[in-house]
Design a protein around this nucleic acid. Structure first.
Lengths: 238, 238
DNA sequence: CTTACTCAAAAAGTCAGACTTTTACAGCAC
DNA sequence: GTGCTGTAAAAGTCTGACTTTTTGAGTAAG
């Protein structure tokens, strides 16, 4: 499935990166470039390039005479899409999913409000189309088709906000939504209330009603959080 | 000022990276590793490692027989701290600052709400201390001291939220606040209303009042946005 | 016993050159 | 015009030698 002939560099990175984010080498562990090169059966050049990339992600720090030390989790570049992917594929996927969903719940309402102000006619049309698509596929186990429209909807909102930082969270949202469908609750049809909310958000954006778009999106986000609380309860109560 | 002997790799990266984010090589431009190596007077190994890092930031894409092509802005990893730093140092600093401030205004209120629920006793104490420090240095052109407390305050809130993604925005907020003091309005004392709001946020968090902490932080954020509208007006009205 | 200095080794960092692999493109045949 | 084929350009990979920084052991002085 995953591309095989993507070059040595990419292959080693996709092997070592997830291992580190999964905690196979706990923070403070020391690796040596030469040893790694041997282990992965690649030349030192390739391994050096891999280490440099991991270093740029703040997963490791390379120091002379010491080696390549794994950094503590708090220092990782957790917004790096690659790191996000690695962690979502790993064991602490639930915790990761929670962090990202909370982030999403903070960002999307504000993005929707901005979208109501800034969306172009084309974006409004796209939004309506997505919402209609969601309605059309919301019943009868057409989950894959529904997912496509759902992802597209949220992407358009984030793009239409006109904020670059928001727009770049489109992939994260896509990952979350896809995860929900594929891992968690793929047996039942989407919540009709959520579908309706999407339609109403599209309306609000079209009418330029920022406050309503924000409030409605906040409801969608709260729904996502509630869903998460059921599937993967938070750490604990106070 | 900036470290000089940080290794060739870092020096070339810090030269080429900002050049790209500044638009010196417009998207679609094609560079050749060999040519770059000559231009920067380093070996191909070093330049290859630099290119690999830029590639992991999605600033460029390297393809055989073609070369290293600069990617369009929308594909850059705009959350990479390094990229953020480069862009903030460049010409479109104002636009960048706006994007980040909007992001901040979306995230911090939610983070404060979570902090009210999750903050430890130590974090509450730290928060109060920061707020008091802000009060103490809020008058008499003690802007540098004030800044330290301000940054610390927002860092503690983001950390105390217990959300990893929020916590990692501490550096971004620090950058924004520092930028405000150093570039924009360093002539007058901070807004007394803002200082009071910080004190009240600390209170709310201490008392575990999530809604109030969120609302108060939203006021702080709105203040920051208003300030931004004055200093660097948004694109245009509808 | 502690402190300060020296020095050797370990590991990353750098360089140079040869070779391999992919692939865009030109030129040719149909 | 369409399709094939071959060539060259550029990245990708490997190897080995050399340099630089840095740690920590050993040693001498207090």
């Amino acid at each position: 499935m995953t591309a095989q002939a993507r070059g040595l560099h990419a292959r080693v990175l996709d092997s070592l990166g997830p291992a580190i984010t999964a905690g196979a080498y706990p923070p403070g562990s020391v690796l040596r470039t030469d040893e790694l090169a041997q282990r992965f059966e690649v030349s030192r050049s390739v391994m050096r390039e891999v280490v440099r990339v991991l270093e740029s992600m703040h997963l490791v720090a390379s120091r002379r005479r010491v080696g390549v030390t794994v950094r503590p989790t708090e220092e990782w570049n957790v917004y790096d899409p690659q790191v996000i992917r690695w962690r979502l594929a790993g064991a602490d996927r639930p915790r990761q999913l929670r962090s990202l969903t909370v982030l999403r719940s903070a960002v999307e309402p504000v993005a929707a409000g901005l979208a109501a102000r800034n969306a172009t006619a084309e974006q409004c049309a796209a939004l309506t189309e997505c919402a209609l698509g969601m309605v059309a596929t919301s019943r009868g186990r057409r989950l894959e088709e529904y997912l496509v429209h759902d992802i597209a909807f949220h992407r358009v909102v984030l793009d239409a906000s006109g904020n670059e930082m928001f727009a770049r969270l489109g992939d994260v949202v896509a990952e979350i939504l896809a995860g929900r469908t594929h891992h968690d609750v793929m047996f039942e049809d989407p919540d009709p209330a959520a579908v309706t909310l999407h339609v109403r958000v599209a309306e609000a954006v079209r009418e330029g009603d920022a406050d309503r778009a924000e409030a409605l999106t906040r409801e969608i986000a709260e729904g996502a959080l509630r869903e998460l609380d059921i599937l993967a309860p938070p750490p604990s109560a106070r």
